[in-house]
Design a binder for these strands. Structure first.
Lengths: 137, 137
DNA sequence: CAGAATCCAAGGGGATACTG
DNA sequence: CAGTATCCCCTTGGATTCTG
């Protein structure tokens, strides 16, 4: 007999659901481009190959840790290539790959939607806060 | 004289950059749809209005806390409407608004891209891990 | 039924310092 | 120059309990 409490059944359902989400392509994509630095790095590289220090300057708000971590993850995903020139000091160039390039039109599409609709969202938010009386607790 | 150390100048640049990002429409949109439960709730509601308990069952992995919090934020953004029927016990229905509805084609577009390309990303990831010898530290 | 409130563990991410 | 390593804070989110 599988005697499970309601709690245990819910926990099991949640576990399965998480496994499902981990395999969902759309969710995986959103996890990547939802990352703050990922989109910024990709957008910067859309203008052409860049050195590490160039990226660091262009994306002024990023820490070295997050920049390196983001670049590593993008390299691992095959979206960005990393090429080292063994000079002194070393020079490292990053660039979009053939796999990463077709991502840019999608980002452009998202940006377009945002510029068309996000002001309405902002207005809705202001109206909501006016009614509830709370700007953002 | 504005005598600033290199650290102070970098900190100031980061501060400005964060302020810029907070006002960037595309970034704000990505922050929303990058949220795990937001997309799942919106997708569920795309099938028509749903009660709280319906959503809770359909999105099996979500806690009540996150479901409520997500619904509140979506209501605040004007993407979802909340209607209370004062019966006993109360009944609450959620639905996409005219502002939230046009978001669905965008999500469909993202999903389409993901299903076309995410397997290549997975392959790149596997190749990367094979070379580096690390499945995922 | 539809939440609100509280507690708490895990992880993300910044600041700093060091290196080949 | 292009990182790596470490510390540490603070947010995120799950579990639990209580209510109208």
């Amino acid at each position: 007999m599988t005697t499970l409490t309601a709690q245990e059944r819910r926990a099991e359902a949640a576990r399965r659901y998480h496994a499902y989400l981990a395999s969902c392509p759309a969710r995986r994509l959103l996890d990547r481009i939802g990352d703050k630095w990922v989109t910024l790095v990709l957008s910067a590289l859309a203008d052409g190959p860049q050195r590490y220090s160039d990226l660091s300057r262009r994306i002024a708000g990023v820490s070295q840790k997050m920049l390196t971590q983001t670049l590593r993850s993008l390299e691992r995903d095959g979206l960005v290539s990393r090429s080292v020139t063994p000079s002194v000091p070393v020079r490292v160039d990053y660039a979009l790959t053939p796999l990463g390039t077709p991502l840019m039109p999608l980002l452009a599409h998202i940006k377009e939607w945002a510029e068309q609709h996000m002001d309405e969202v902002a207005a809705a938010r202001a109206a909501y806060d006016r009614v509830t009386g709370a700007p953002a607790p």
